[in-house]
Design a protein around this nucleic acid. Structure first.
Length: 802
RNA sequence: GCGGGUAUGGCGGAACUGGCAGACGCGCCAGACUUAGGAUCUGGUGUCUAGUACGUGGGGGUUCAAGUCCCUUUACCCGCACCA
């Protein structure tokens, strides 16, 4: 069999589809819509990688199928083009990042277009386009207006050698990714977005969306809701020490307290603390520890007792000591805890290290040997008025008591932190505010948006950790929009996550310059019906964009509380050696090479056939040949073509079954088995050595979303009407997928012994009779007693003998 | 430590609410056509000691029947990590 001329065919159809604007989403709001979305790529200098086409092809298949099913489909593409690698490349090679970006986008676009994906290119966007980032800035100003954006002193990563601020991603194992020298924390004023204000809704609304379970689980985990209580402990210093606990029931077991090294009371109590020097030294030591060291040392509990101040347990008026220890974090809860060593592992470790009393308050464990933390079954002991209650009952009662005495209250805490939103970098959206000596932070008026990134000569971050923009005096020095006095612009820029937090809205109406998108267009297209992307974005991009969307919903800009109705995630494509593809491992496969050797259709098909879509799978340059062979066999089908519009009697059932299988599998992300079914069908056709025109029509339509170029070419060469891309998705009849006669396996004692063929609806008695009459079964049951006969309708017969 | 996941032929992987384990593809073997084959076609291909055998990481259990359910255990992958 000859190989078909994929080079010529693919180029030809890509041109025709583009000319006829086949995949342009219509602005016809009367039609049923379908919005399919993949994560827009960061156009890196390396170009496309075989990992990219996997999700793109998957949703391309969905999009193409939906069009054939009569939907008005929006399947857009764009560029998440701000970011560090481009900036670093620009610094190194002394080229403007804008030029680098433009070049990278061109390359990416050309590569993506060679895959024959049905993107609506008329809606292409780039986050670096001022017409786009105008609205990113606009959303930021709205957040500022609503009090969701604020500035705060925060610790940032500072490379001691490069003398610049690093993003978390640039800090690898505590050292600078570029120069390998030590990274320390440095306090800087940072822009923060109050995502925590949306924590509850981000969590609860997960119930209303169709996300794959692991995405939901990861988001839930990340948001980390804990229900408990805040309790006020009186101290001998007179100040109230507030703590958070999820186990207020164990209050009687609190034998000491711990505050974080950064807790403000250390300074406040300075004069009362007889060992202040020792405490301060501990605090300095803790601050010096890098994240890595803190993790490594997690097992060893260290700390210092505060001599001079004690706390008083509100339930029994007992005085208990206070310690400072770095196992308590200032960033969670109140930065202070009550320690119940009998029922908490960390407190237990600490109590052991410092020889502190351990009081059991929930019976059932052995707290002198190990903390008894799983106390769902236990009853309260040593707990005064709580004695004898279950843990749940005790929680309710103690909270009631605390509230009555005004020494505590029910409280919910989240692990989720506010979002540090500023970067001291050039290649990002300028934050559109002005610092005025009289008016403070003043937002730019809307009519001054977009605030353009100025041209600079040098993108190198400064010695002081200020953004490169701070050196642009002409740009920095401005006047206050409010009072007209001389003022300075904000020089920090937004993080890469900003532009990608709302890009799916812009696709809906990408050229609008009076709003981020028109109301009626948003009303029609939202929510995104199916969004596929990488698991690595679950707790960043996906959560951030849900947050922004909810904010926009609250201010009446978008009509839905959630942006994405359905979220799925693809597995990675690994190198041939089973390792992650990377330049340094030398196992990267370039899609361009695959396309020139086998064609885009084969690449698409192989990436879908490679394995379970949700799991990672190693690339195999041998296996891809099977997909090419299948397409060659499809091409050669035209040689077997016979007249006749319907299905031949021998193949009718197979066709109905395959249509059903492919239709359902696409919806379930089971592209690999959909392809297997089509391969099985073509094998049947080859066995029969003939295919009718009707059969051909169905086969080409089924395969079209997977291999659009070849099928379109065959559609034309067979003389079928119109464009295949606009044909109707084939239908099947359920009744015709069911065989009239089925093969029923017959087991003896659970082992397969024979197979009988019976009519579909044959009653149980008759099937059993037929099974027992079977020659092999007769042979093997001879002389034995039949104890039991089982018939699972349509499935199998099992005869139990002794 | 917590959360999520995975383990099936030589390889990638199939198997719906328990019901013929290994679909489909790669590779391999044999044959055909060929000057030739790294092309194509046809047939075969879980394992072995070849049986009434064995077989889905290991061990136990439930069941007429277990890759699938229960208990237990091992290895690996991903995310988070002193979150009170």
């Amino acid at each position: 069999m000859k190989s078909y001329d994929f080079k010529q065919i693919e180029k030809k159809w890509q041109k025709i589809w583009a000319e006829k604007e086949c995949f342009k989403a219509e602005n016809d709001y009367s039609k049923p819509k379908y919005y399919a979305l993949i994560e827009f790529p960061y156009p890196s200098g390396q170009g496309l990688h075989v990992g990219h086409p996997r999700p793109y092809t998957a949703l391309d298949i969905v999009a193409r199928k939906r069009r054939m099913q009569g939907y008005n489909v929006l399947y857009p593409m764009g560029w998440d083009a701000f970011g560090l690698p481009t900036e670093n490349y620009a610094i190194k090679n002394n080229i403007h990042p804008e030029i680098v970006t433009k070049r990278n986008i061109e390359h990416f676009k050309q590569q993506i277009q060679s895959l024959g994906l049905s993107f609506d290119w008329s809606r292409e966007i780039s986050t670096t386009d001022p017409a786009y980032y105008k609205w990113t800035q606009w959303i930021f100003l709205k957040m500022l207006e609503k009090g969701l954006a604020y500035k705060k002193e925060m610790a940032v990563n500072w490379c001691t050698s490069c003398k610049c601020v690093l993003a978390n991603e640039e800090v690898v194992n505590g050292v600078c990714e570029r120069c390998g020298s030590q990274v320390v924390r440095k306090n800087k004023n940072q822009w923060i977005l109050k995502i925590t204000e949306y924590a509850d809704r981000l969590l609860n609304d997960l119930d209303n969306v169709d996300y794959i379970p692991r995405v939901k689980a990861q988001q839930k985990n990340w948001i980390g809701k804990s229900t408990g209580a805040e309790v006020d402990f009186q101290t001998t210093a007179g100040d109230i020490l507030k703590i958070f606990t999820t186990r207020p029931d164990t209050l009687f077991g609190a034998t000491y307290m711990v505050i974080s090294p950064e807790h403000p009371y250390i300074e406040q109590w300075k004069d009362r603390l007889s060992n202040y020097e020792e405490i301060a030294a501990y605090r300095t030591e803790a601050a010096k520890k890098s994240d890595l060291e803190r993790t490594e040392l997690a097992k060893e509990k260290t700390g210092v007792r505060l001599h001079g101040v004690c706390a008083v347990n509100p339930v029994n008026e007992k005085e208990i000591p206070i310690f400072v220890s770095d196992y308590v974090l200032m960033s969670y809860g109140t930065g202070a805890i009550m320690a119940v060593p009998a029922h908490d592992d960390r407190d237990w470790d600490f109590a052991r290290a410092f020889d502190l009393p351990i009081i059991e308050v929930v019976a059932g464990g052995d707290p002198q040997t190990a903390a008894y933390t799983d106390c769902a079954e236990g009853k309260m002991v040593n707990s005064g008025f709580l004695d004898g209650l279950s843990v749940d009952e005790a929680k309710k009662k103690i909270i009631g008591w605390l509230e009555e005495k005004s020494v505590g209250t029910a409280k919910v805490n989240f692990k989720l932190r506010d979002w540090i939103f500023s970067r001291q970098r050039y290649w990002g959206e300028p934050i559109p505010v002005v610092h005025c000596p009289h008016c403070g932070i003043v937002p730019l008026p809307e009519d001054q948006l977009p605030l353009l990134l100025p041209e600079v000569d040098n993108y190198q971050p400064t010695d002081t950790g200020e953004s490169p923009l701070s050196k642009m005096e002409d740009w920095v020095n401005t006047t206050c929009p409010k009072c007209g006095a001389p003022a300075k612009r904000e020089t920090d820029t937004m993080p890469q996550w900003a532009g990608s937090s709302w890009y799916f809205l812009r696709y809906i109406d990408p050229k609008n310059d009076s709003a981020l998108a028109a109301k009626e267009a948003l009303q029609y297209w939202l929510p995104v019906d199916w969004y596929n992307g990488g698991m690595e974005h679950t707790t960043l991009h996906l959560l951030y964009s849900r947050f922004w969307h909810k904010f926009l919903y609250d201010i009446g800009v978008v009509p839905t509380p959630e942006p994405y109705a359905k979220r799925t995630s693809h597995g990675m494509i690994l190198g041939e050696n089973g390792e992650k593809m990377s330049k340094s491992r030398g196992n990267v496969v370039n899609p361009d090479d695959v396309i020139s050797e086998y064609g885009a259709d084969t690449l698409r098909l192989y990436e879908m056939f490679i394995g379970d879509f949700e799991k990672s799978a190693p690339w195999s340059s041998a296996s891809i040949k099977g997909c090419k062979r299948f397409l060659d066999r499809t091409f050669a089908l035209s040689e077997l073509l016979t007249d006749g519009d319907g299905y031949s009697p021998e193949l009718e059932k197979s066709f109905h079954k395959t249509i059903k299988k492919v239709s359902e599998d696409i919806e379930d992300l089971k592209f690999n088995t959909a392809i297997a079914a089509m391969m099985a069908l073509i094998n049947e056709i080859y066995d029969k050595k003939a295919v009718t025109k009707g059969e051909m029509k169905t086969f080409l339509r089924l395969l079209n979303p997977f291999a659009p170029h070849l099928t379109e070419e065959l559609w034309q060469s067979c003389g079928f009407e119109g464009l295949l891309a606009k044909a109707e998705w084939p239908a099947y009849e359920e009744a015709k997928t069911i065989e009239n006669e089925t093969e029923i396996p017959v087991q003896i004692n659970g082992k397969l012994r024979s197979v009988i063929t019976v009519a579909k609806d044959l009653p149980k008695e008759a099937v059993l009779a037929a099974a027992k009459a079977d020659e092999k079964i007769v042979q093997q049951t001879e002389g034995k007693t039949i104890v039991k006969e089982i018939y699972v309708p349509g499935k199998l017969v099992n005869i139990v003998v002794k």
